Amino acid sequence: MVSGAQLTVTDMRRATRHPADHKVIGEHRRIGDVHMHIINVSAHGFMVEGDLEISRGERVTIRLPEVGRIEAHMIWSNDGRAGFQFERIIRLDDFMKLINALQPNPRLRARR
């Protein structure tokens, strides 16, 4: 029996990524708080910049605007960057609200 998430990473790499500049504190079961700087996000996952004390395959729980708490696991890590895949895909309406909240350029944010 296979345990854990069943991933199709190659398919998810094609998802559109949106720039972000968002700092979060992830919760990790072994080391506790993990400070992360999200630099892009898609409906399937996100990329962080900076060195992390976790390894590929390990899980963190983060809190995102409009989405709330969501679990993700590290898919890759290289040269001070790391990619994470969400345990579930974010619904389109919530994702649109999320990218608007995380958009680093105020001129590109959707008008309310």
Rank of each mutant, 00 (worst) to 15 (best):
A15K: 10
R17T: 06
R17V: 11
H18F: 14
H18P: 02
P19V: 02
D21V: 01
D21G: 08
H22M: 02
H22L: 10
H22P: 04
H22W: 07
H22I: 00
K23N: 11
K23Y: 02
V24F: 02
V24N: 00
V24Y: 01
I25H: 02
E27G: 01
H28V: 03
H28G: 04
R29C: 08
R29E: 15
R30S: 12
I31H: 12
G32T: 04
V34W: 05
H37P: 07
I38E: 04
N40H: 07
N40P: 02
S42M: 08
A43W: 02
H44L: 11
G45F: 02
G45T: 08
M47I: 07
M47K: 10
M47P: 00
E49S: 13
G50C: 03
D51L: 08
L52D: 07
E53W: 07
E53C: 06
I54N: 05
S55M: 00
E58P: 01
I62N: 06
I62W: 00
I62G: 09
I62C: 00
R63T: 15
R63H: 13
R63E: 15
E66V: 06
V67S: 03
V67W: 04
R69H: 13
I70H: 13
E71M: 13
A72V: 06
H73G: 10
M74L: 15
I75Q: 14
W76A: 14
S77Q: 15
N78W: 13
N78E: 15
N78R: 15
D79Q: 14
R81P: 00
R81Q: 13
R81K: 11
A82H: 03
A82E: 02
A82T: 01
G83F: 07
F84D: 04
F84M: 03
Q85I: 11
Q85A: 15
F86M: 06
E87A: 12
E87R: 09
R91C: 11
R91P: 15
R91I: 12
L92A: 14
D93W: 01
